[in-house]
């Protein structure tokens, strides 16, 4: 069969590198800056994941179709994250809404409405 596998020696070297990276990520957790901390942690995790994928999972011997399949999930995930966060990152700041006269009046308006139409605010749903 044409399939190749990683040699034992490479396996041990990669494992050593993974342990070093593990120690690095724990040390890097001391970074006080929240954003920088995330970036460093994710970078180290990505390098570890790539080492596992390329060496342990033998992707370096794989054909282009397999490599495409490897990439597909991660590309899909990036699409999900990017477009979803495009919503969260650009939502109107809530403090503007909360300080607007309409929002401030909302609880009173609800109470008045509940007095007028108690049936609409009755708890529980009949089945």
């Amino acid at each position: 069969m044409a399939a190749h596998v990683t040699s034992s020696r490479s396996c041990y070297i990669v494992f050593g590198a993974l342990l070093v990276l593990l120690v690095l990520t724990v040390i890097a957790a001391g970074i006080e800056n929240h954003t920088l901390g995330i970036i460093v942690a994710l970078l180290i995790a990505t390098v570890k994941a790539l080492l596992i994928i390329v060496y342990f999972m033998n992707v370096r011997f794989a054909d282009w179709v397999t490599r495409l399949a490897v990439a597909a999930g991660f590309v899909g995930l990036i699409v999900l994250l990017a477009f979803m966060m495009s919503d969260y990152l650009t939502r109107d700041p809530v403090d503007e809404i909360e300080t607007s006269p309409v929002t401030r009046a909302a609880p009173e308006a609800f109470e008045a409405l509940a007095l007028l139409h108690p049936e609409a605010f009755a708890p529980g749903i009949s089945v």
């Binding site: 899909g76 699409v79 477009f83 495009s86 919503d87 969260y88 990152l89 650009t90 939502r91 109107d92």
Partner: peptide
Amino acid sequence: GFFVWGHHMFVSGQSVYAGLVF
């Protein structure tokens, strides 16, 4: 097809900017 799902959420409280992109 994977880039357009936000058009189901135009009036759900999604950011208007994301809405424009979608």
